[in-house]
Amino acid sequence: MKNKEQEFLAHIETNKGIIHKICKMYMDTADDQQDLFQEVVYQLWKSYDSFQEQSRFSTWMYRVALNTAIVFLKKERRKVQTSDAMPEHLADEDHGGTEKELQLYHFYKAVQQLEKLEKALVFYHLENYSHREIADNLGISEVNARVKLNRAKTKLKELIKQQGYAF
C-alpha cells in the first residue's frame, strides 16, 4: 500500500505542472486553485486502480483531472472585495513583471471566462491532442469537437482583446 502511494505521489510530482495549469484555467483565486488541486489529487488517487490497465499515466490523468475540474464546485467563501486590477508586480516591469508573466496573466484571465467545456477543449488543444482524441476524451463527436474548439478559440481571442491586450 505504501509503495503504491509513493509511486502515485511520484507520478503526481512529475505531472503536477499539468494539474497546476488546469487549476489556473478553472479557478481564478489562489485559494480555489489550491482546493481544486487537492480535489484532483483526491480523485486521481481514488480511481488510481483503474489506471493500471492504461498505457500512460498522463493520458489517464488528463481525463480524470479535467472531469474533476468540470464538475468542481467553488467553496462558498465569505465575499471578499476583489479588484480587476492587475497584480502590482506584473504592472511594473521594473519590479519583476516580465512580458511572459504579463501574457500568461491575460491568457489565464481570459480562459477563466470561458465555459467549462470550452476550457477543456482549449486545454486539450494546447496539449497537442488531435480532434479525434479530444472528442474521445470528452465523449463528443469529432465534428462537434472541431466546431466547438474553433468557437472557443475565437472567443478566447476576443476576451483577450477586451482586456486591452494584444500579443
Binding site: 505521489l9 499539468i18 489529487v41 488517487w45 468542481f72 467553496k75
Partner: peptide, 24 residues
C-alpha cells in the same frame, strides 16, 4: 503555454489519507 511550467504554487499532499473531497 509550452513555456509555462506551472510554477511551484501548488502543494502536493504528503499523506493521501488526510486529503478529502468536499467540493464535488
Amino acid at each position: 503555454w509550452n513555456k509555462d511550467d506551472g510554477g511551484d504554487d501548488m502543494v502536493v499532499p504528503v499523506n493521501l489519507e488526510k486529503i478529502k473531497s468536499a467540493n464535488q
